[in-house]
Every structure is written in C-alpha cells, then in structure tokens.
C-alpha cells in the first residue's frame, strides 16, 4: 500500500493504477461525507465521481500544505456545498439559512415545523439526518466531520480553512440548533 506522498507523486505522473488505489481507499470517506452533508442518496454517486475527477485534474496544483486526506475532505465538503447551492437555486426551496447572521428564532420556527412535518411523513428516516438538513451548511459540515468522521477541531479547522475557535463555535451552535429541533420531536414521539 502506497503512502499518501507516494500516491500523490504517482497521480502527478498520471499513473492510473494509483488513481484506482486512491478511489478504493478514499471512496468510502468521500461518499459518507457527501451523503451526510447533502442527505441526497441519489446524487451522491455522481458527486463522488466528480470529486475524483477533480482530484485527477487538480493534483498537479496540489501543494501538499495539507495532507492528501485533508485535501480530499476539502474537495468533498466543497462539492456537497456547491450541490446544495445549486439545488436551492433550482428548486427555490429554502434548505438552509442564507448566513450565520440570519434571524434564528423565525428561521428556527420555520425549520422546526418543516422538520416535524418531514418526520411525520417519513417515520423511518433518521431524526439526526432530517434535523441536520435544517442547519446552515457550515454548522452541518463541522458537526458531520466531528461526530461522524471523529475528526479533531484542528483537523476540521484545516479542512474548512477556519480557526480552531471558529470550529468550536460552529459545533456549539450546531448542537444548540439540533437541541431546538430534536427536543420537540422526541417529546412528541413520546406522547
């Protein structure tokens, strides 16, 4: 098995065997992250494929300031964000708050109602998946990388190109918003 450095060098030489190894090694991570951020099972394979094509095309410009896995996480989270932006534009449906400065109380009530309606319609869906779709993209990404991928705050900061304190703040706000969504859901479920 090649090291990340060997793999990167081989990709720069346009070694297709190395590219296949890269896919085998990183496809599960890429698919998991994209799926958990977008919540879109149908589009995930196409998005994963596009990430790997981007790696092949951009590996010459990869400056190795970060590790290969950090770079792949960056490409995956960016791909997921761009997909959501495009989807939002296409459908005109408000999936997330436009910015961190949005009014949480009004947005939260709207999101909360929407989430509860969705839970009622799709009882088999996971509550966490549905609640995450109500969070702003940055909060969702930080939460997925932390809770699903088990990455540390400095690692997430490198992927999201933020300071460690910003990542801590994003995770804190993500949890607060999730509590606001999940608490009425579980209370209703019990009754």
């Amino acid at each position: 098995m090649m090291t990340e450095k060997q793999l990167t060098d081989a990709l720069r030489r346009r070694d297709e065997a190395a590219f296949r190894e890269l896919i085998l090694r990183f496809q599960p991570i890429t698919a998991r992250v994209i799926f958990k951020i977008t919540g879109d099972k149908e589009e995930t394979p196409d998005l994963v494929q596009e990430v790997f094509v981007s790696i092949w095309e951009q590996v010459k410009n990869f400056r190795e300031e970060a590790s290969l896995s950090t770079w792949i996480y960056q490409l995956s989270t960016n791909k997921a964000r761009n997909h959501l932006k495009w989807k939002k534009l296409r459908t005109g449906f408000r999936l997330s708050w436009q910015s961190e400065q949005a009014q949480p109380p009004a947005g939260m009530n709207h999101s909360l109602n929407m989430a509860l309606e969705m839970f009622e319609r799709k009882d088999d869906e996971n509550a966490i998946t549905m609640a995450l779709q109500q969070l702003p993209h940055n909060q969702r990404t930080a939460f997925v990388l932390s809770k699903s991928e088990g990455l540390s705050n400095p690692e997430i900061a490198a992927i999201m190109k933020l300071s460690v304190s910003s990542v801590e703040s994003l995770n804190f706000r993500a949890r607060q918003n999730l509590v606001k969504i999940l608490l009425p859901y579980y209370n209703n479920k019990k009754s």
């Binding site: 590219f19 896919i23 496809q27 698919a31 994209i34 394979p45 579980y186 209370n187």
Partner: peptide, 26 residues
C-alpha cells in the same frame, strides 16, 4: 426515553451511508 432514542438514532446515523456505490471515474 429521549436519551435512549437519541443514542440509537446517533448510532444509526453514524453507520448510515449511501451504500455500495459503483463509480468509474477512470
């Protein structure tokens, strides 16, 4: 009840993925 439900949902979410996906970027 709530914490047991949330624990189960979190475990399920952590294991959740798009399943086996067949891609051929080559």
């Amino acid at each position: 009840f709530v914490i047991d439900q949330l624990t189960a949902d979190l475990e399920k979410w952590q294991q959740q993925g798009p399943g086996t996906i067949a891609i051929d970027p080559t």
